[in-house]
Amino acid sequence: MQRRHFLKNTMVTGAAVLAASSGLLVPGQVFAAWNKDAFTAKDVPGAMKGAIGSDSAETSDKIKIKAPPIAENGAVVPVTISSTLGDVKSITIISEKNGTPLIAKFNMGAGTEAYISTRIKMGKTSNIIAICESGGKFYKAQQEVKVTIGGCGG
C-alpha cells in the first residue's frame, strides 16, 4: 500500500514538472491556453463572454472591416480588420450565424499594429463582428457578408 502510494505520488509530481518545463520551453505560451468554452459557444453573447469576458461592446467607427459584400464560397471568405484605436490589445472575429460564432481571437503584443488579415469559413449569410480591445474597453464594428454557398458542413 505504501509503495503504491509512493509510486502514484512520484508519477503525479513527475507529470507536473514535465508540464511546467514544457511550458517554459515554449515562450509563446505566456498567452492563455485555448479557450474551449468560447469556441464551442453556440450563440453570439456566449462567444463574446467567453472571448472577451463581456457580451457588450461599444460600436465604433474606428474599426474597419474589409470583407466582400457577397462571398461566392463560404469556405473561404477573406477578411481584413484594421483599427485606428490606439493600443489595441486584441482583435476578435465573430460570424453571427455560424454554428459556433467565435472564429478567432488575435492577441497583440507591444509593437504589433491593429491589423489582421485572414480567411474564414461562413455557414450562411450573416454579419461579421470585429471586436477590438483598447485601453481596457471593447469596441465593435460589423459588416454583412452574403454567402451563396455555405462553408460549414459542406
Binding site: V77, T100, I103, F106, N107, T112, E113, T118, I120
Partner: peptide, 22 residues
C-alpha cells in the same frame, strides 16, 4: 512574443494570416 492567435475551426483550410509589427 508579437502576436498570438487563438483559432476555432472556422478558419479556412490552408489558413492565410497577415499582420504588421514594428
Amino acid at each position: 512574443a508579437a502576436m498570438n492567435a487563438e483559432w476555432g475551426p472556422a478558419i479556412s483550410k490552408n489558413p492565410y494570416l497577415s499582420f504588421k509589427v514594428a
